[in-house]
Structure formats: structure tokens, C-alpha cells
Design a protein around this nucleic acid. Sequence first.
RNA 1: GUGGGUAUAGCUCAGCUGGUUAGAGCGCCAGGUUGUGGCCCUGGAGGUCGCCGGUUCGAAUCCGGUUACUCACCCCA
Length: 421
Amino acid sequence: MALTTSPRGTADIFGSNLETWLKLEGYIRDICRTYGYQELRTPMFEHTELFQRGIGETTDIVEKEMYTFTDRGGRSITLRPEGTAPVVRAFLEHNMGQGPLPVKLFYLGPMFRYERPQAGRYRQFHQFGLEVLGSADPLLDVETILLPVELYKTCGLEGFVVELNSIGCPECRPRYRDELKEYIRPHIGEMCSSCQARFERNPMRLLDCKNEGCRKVLAGAPVITDYLCPGCAEHFAQVRSYLDVLEVEYVLNPKLVRGFDYYTRTVFEVTFAGLGAQNAIGAGGRYDGLIEEVGGSPTPAVGFAVGVERLLLALESEGSFAPEARRPDAFIVQFGGETKVRAAKLMYELRRAGLHAEMDHLSRSVRAQMKAANRLNARWVLILGEEELLAGQAKLKDMDRGTEELVDLAVVRQHIQVGEE
RNA sequence: GUGGGUAUAGCUCAGCUGGUUAGAGCGCCAGGUUGUGGCCCUGGAGGUCGCCGGUUCGAAUCCGGUUACUCACCCCA
């Protein structure tokens, strides 16, 4: 095992890359504030059963992608593979349902799934997500679509598409499932092995199979939205109506199904072409049954999650999100000895005043110090020599213009601050 | 879990059919300017050629394995 490489599917985030992250995180916190969402930070790990019950025993995540281990107390612990189940757990644990409804929460942090890494897919990745708990208002379904869309737009992202569907509820879904199976059954022999394996257990998952032959079979399959119960149909109609009123562009995709068992009614996915095979940059939906499943009283809820790395990849591919490079306000050049002592005092004085000041720590020549200042892209260089100090002055060089002048030490700070504006 | 591609300096990459001291550009350090950046010039540091094994007189080069990266399948953010 290489001690000098991070574990597979993980990455260090630093340098200019980190600046980009911080900028995006700033946008995320801003939009959550204006939309009235409170941040919730849940633990990185939970009891394994939470995910088994929440996400569904037969989902791929639970069956083969979880980082699960037994702790020293014999408990089965799992690194969170997604954010919704922990939020629901916290909602119940802290009796948030007793407070003003709906409860609007957001989270931003790492998730863990044991998968083969690939473009836009990592073992530790980050999600920004939010959940609205305690209301079945279709307007809130729309809000969870609108908010990420607004975020993408704020970031300058253009080439994304919102796909929308309704997968009904436990009332209407069984009837559709039966119809679908009836339709598929005569053709099941000619379908791919994974479709055959899933046919009995979860026939709806066959709908988004990418296999050419399977797609052909399913092209004429019955569509869930034709089988919605009156309640779900009405809900879906209102969602679409609000989307139109709020001018959110979307595409109906009756074959859109989701990998988690907990979804009901509205599901959506935001895709971005050009990310490779992993093209979803955000997804979500309504989960009216999850809270009860986890042990709470029946409570409707809706939410979504955005893959931070994927969003950053998408932004990078469009090339319009680079944050402004940071530059020091001042670099102080000195000649060692007493001049270095005076330079140090000046540097910390400037920093106390909120200015980013730097100096050399490698006993370098003036020329090398100037080069360093240039490399750091310092706005000003202060040259503290014996002569200048005797006169209580320093040379102040404007690195953008190449001009310099003698300035009294007492007013150096003002010169730099004024020059910044 | 399955399949393809890749692995040489901090970064991006050369290195032909195996042949002496493994190269370039960029970056880094120093000098050209005994107190002045960007451009230019000169020099320098820096590499167990991913790792293990095999073939061979001889392997960065061929073969096998392994690990990592990468792309795709599966699945998903």
C-alpha cells in the first residue's frame, strides 16, 4: 500500500481548486439563506439499519456500495451514502415536527459509496442537498426543482436539462407495475440479464435500462403517468402548472425512475451533457412514506441533492466559473539585519489592519525577493533599506504600473489602502 | 464486481524494432543587474522509469502478476 497516495476514489482539495469550491459553497449558502433553509450537519456515519430501512434493502447502494463496519461496541456502522435518511433521522430525533411546519433544511458535505471510480464518480464525494419536511404542497416540489436550477444559473451554467416524472404512490403504483409486467412478459426472454433478474422484484427499474434491445422493447410500454390515482394525478398537474407559472423549463420523461425505494409522486433529475456517463448533476423527488418507514408519524416531504464534484466539472467544461485569483496587498523587501526586524513589524502592522502582507523567509537577494513578489502577484512592494529607514521612509512600488515613490513609514498603510480602491 | 487504455522529473510529455552516463518544455533555485519583478540569456537542483517477478549478455523498452489512475458497463450525485 502506497503511503503517499490517498485511498482510491478520494481526493485532496487545495490551491486554486479549493478557491473554486469555496466560491460555490458561498453561492450555496447564499441561496439557501434567501430561500429560508437552515443548515443541518449530521454525523458522517449512522447506524447501518437507518440506510437499510430508508434507502431500501434491495437497492444497489445498500446491497453493495456501503462502507459498513462494526465498531468496538459491536454496533454496525455505515458511512453515510446519501443525505436524506440522516436528515429524516435528525428531524425525528429532535422532534422538529412539533415546531413550525414545514421544516426546511439543507446540508453540504461528504458522502461515501464503495464503487469503481470513474469520471464524475468517487468513493468520497460531496453533496449539497435540501429537504422540506411536513408538507405535501406541490409548490414545494417545485421549490426543490427551482432552487438548484437557480443555483446553476447563478453559477453561470447553461447546458443543463431538467427531467420530470411522477412515479405515483403505493395506491396507484401496483396497478401500473402489473400492467408493465404484462406488457414486458412476452419479451422478457430477449432482454438483458439484469433486466431479467429485476423483472419480478422491481420491474420499473427496467424502464431506464440503456441496453439497445431492452429500450426497443420498452419503447411502447405503458406509461406510469397514465395510471396515476386521482390524488397523484392532481398533484402532478399542479407541479407542472407551478413550473410553468415560474417559468422553469423541463422535459417530461415518463421513463424516469430513481434508485431509491423511498420516492413517491414527483421525481426529477438534472442532467448535463459532456460529463461522460455520469451525467446527473442533481436529482430529487418527493418521499411521503420515508418518515413513517423510519419510525415517525406519517409526514410528507420532498428534497433533492446536487453532486458538488459533478457540478464543478460541468462548470469547468463551460469555463466561466473561475474565481478571482487572490493577490497580496503588499510584499515587503528587506536586506536582513535591522531592516528585517523593521520589515517584520511593518508586515504584522499591515496584517492587523486587514491587509495581506508578505515578506521573504529564505534570506534571498533583493532581485529574488522582487521575483517572489511578482510571482505572488503582489499589488505593492515596499522596499525597506538602511537609507530609507534612517529617514523614516520606505520605497513603495506599484507593481502594476512599475512606478515607485518614497513614502513616510507612518502613512504607508494609508497609501496601500487608498491604492486598493 | 466486469472490460478497455495508461503509468518516465513538481506539471505536460518524448524515448524508434531491448544496447553505454534517461531527455524536452513549463515550473523551481541561482547568476547575468554588489538595492528592483515581468521579457531575454546562462547555469543548477530534481527521476528506485508505479511495484514484484520473468525472458535476455543486457530491460524504461518484451512477457506475467500486482497496485494506482483513467474510460466504459453496473449504478448513481
